[in-house]
Simulated scan of single mutants.
Amino acid sequence: MGKRGISEKTFDRLNILFVMMIVLVITYPVIFIVSASISDPAAVNTGKMWLWPVDITFDGFKKVFQNEAIWRGYFNTIIYTLVGTAIHLVLLLPASYALSRKELKGKKFLLWFILFTMLFNGGLIPTYLVVKSLGMLDTIWAIVIPGVVGAWSILVARTFFQQSIPDQLVEVAKIDGASDIFIFFRIALPLSAPLIAVMALFHGVSMWNQYFGALIYLSDESKYPLQLVLREILIVNEISGDGTMEGAGTAGSLVEQVKTADLIKYAVMIVSALPLLIIYPFLQKYFVKGVLIGSVKE
Rank of each mutant, 00 (worst) to 15 (best):
I278D: 02
Q284E: 15
R231Y: 08
P275T: 11
Y286N: 07
V205S: 03
Y280M: 09
V229K: 04
M245H: 07
M207W: 09
A214S: 09
V255E: 11
L228G: 00
A197R: 02
L274P: 03
F202A: 06
G204V: 11
L201W: 13
G213H: 11
Q284N: 10
E232I: 06
A200Y: 00
L230G: 00
F212K: 09
I270Q: 08
F212Q: 14
S219T: 13
A214F: 10
K285R: 15
T244D: 09
D262H: 10
I278Y: 03
G249K: 12
V255Q: 08
V291M: 13
P281G: 14
F282K: 07
L263P: 00
F287H: 00
I235W: 02
G241I: 15
S219W: 12
R231I: 04
I196L: 10
V271M: 02
V229S: 01
Y280L: 11
L218C: 04
S219Q: 14
E256L: 15
V255W: 13
Q210M: 14
D220E: 05
K265I: 04
N209A: 13
S219M: 11
A214P: 05
L263Q: 12
T260E: 15
K223L: 09
L226K: 05
H203C: 09
K259I: 08
V236I: 11
I264R: 00
L283K: 00
Y280I: 06
V291N: 01
D242F: 11
K265Y: 13
Q257D: 06
P275D: 06
Y211Q: 10
N237T: 10
Q227H: 07
L195R: 02
A261V: 10
A197D: 03
I279S: 01
G243I: 12
Y217L: 11
Y224H: 02
T244W: 04
K285I: 14
E221R: 08
V198Y: 00
F202P: 00
A200M: 05
H203S: 05
I239D: 01
G252C: 04
A273E: 03
T260A: 07
V229P: 05
V291W: 01
E246K: 14
K289R: 15
S272Q: 05
Y217Q: 07
S206K: 13
N209Y: 07
H203G: 01
M245D: 13
A200V: 13
E256D: 08
A197V: 13
I264W: 01
I278K: 01
I216W: 08
V288E: 03
A267V: 12
N237Y: 10
S206F: 15
G247K: 15
V271L: 00
A267E: 10
S219K: 15
G249Y: 14
A214D: 10
L226Q: 02
V268A: 05
Q210Y: 09
F212R: 05
L274V: 08
G241E: 14
G252F: 14
M269E: 03
Q227F: 04
V271K: 01
S240A: 13
V258S: 06
N237Q: 10
V271T: 11
V291K: 00
R231D: 00
L234P: 06
V288C: 04
Q257K: 07
N209I: 03
L234Q: 05
I264E: 02
I239S: 01
L254H: 07
H203F: 13
Q257L: 09
V268W: 00
Q284L: 13
L276N: 02
D220A: 10
L218W: 12
L228T: 01
A267L: 14
M199T: 05
D262S: 07
Y224M: 08
D242Y: 15
E246Q: 12
T250L: 12
S206A: 14
